[in-house]
């Protein structure tokens, strides 16, 4: 079993364990298949130019699921993600592929979070967090919020 986070381990102002991601064109094709979103905006340069975006962009929903993973990795098997929200504020451009398996050099995205509130709601030990994705320049492209329920040592 993976390590379990307990409510007592968390402090307001504390950090959610960061998660790094590298978006590639290959990953966006894989996401199109895995999610069923085949909008050419995310894999076709001509279409993306016509749509005024310039080049294929990372799916908002993929960035959302990165942030969901940030939280489910952090809270462990016995934690429960109760509420989650995020906004797709800025576009992210995937790295091109240099070989079958490796992307060209470029930016790395970081999913991060910070504990804003820790409280008990009825029987539930809750933690509120701000979450966000930073692009390679350190700009927040995808801000959000999450509320989780954690097990307590009691």
């Amino acid at each position: 079993m993976k390590k379990q986070l307990y409510w007592e381990d968390v402090a307001e102002g504390g950090e959610v364990t960061p998660l790094s991601k590298i978006a590639t064109t290959a990953m966006l094709v894989r996401w199109a298949g895995g999610s069923g979103d085949f909008n050419p905006l995310h894999y076709d340069k001509v279409f993306a130019e016509g749509a005024g975006v310039g080049q294929p962009i990372v799916h908002g929903a993929l960035k959302r699921q990165w942030l969901v993973q940030l939280m489910t990795d952090w809270i462990g098997d016995r934690g429960w993600l109760k509420r989650f929200s995020c906004q797709y504020r800025a576009m992210d451009i995937p790295r091109a592929m240099r070989t079958m398996t490796d992307p060209v050099d470029g930016e790395t995205w970081w999913c991060k979070g910070k504990v804003t509130k820790k409280y008990i709601d009825g029987d539930s030990h809750c933690v509120d967090c701000d979450v966000w994705i930073e692009n390679g320049k350190g700009e927040v492209t995808t801000p959000g919020k999450a509320t989780v329920i954690l097990p307590a040592r009691g």
Binding site: S35, D37, F38, Q65, V68, Q69, T72, D77, F84
Partner: peptide
């Protein structure tokens, strides 16, 4: 695990997430 079986990640409710092809 305490779930007792495979679960889906939060945010996955079955495929496809959106209607396939064309403008969703």
């Amino acid at each position: 695990s305490h779930y007792g079986d495979i679960i889906a990640p939060p945010g996955f409710f079955g495929w496809p997430l959106k209607q396939p092809m064309g403008s969703p």
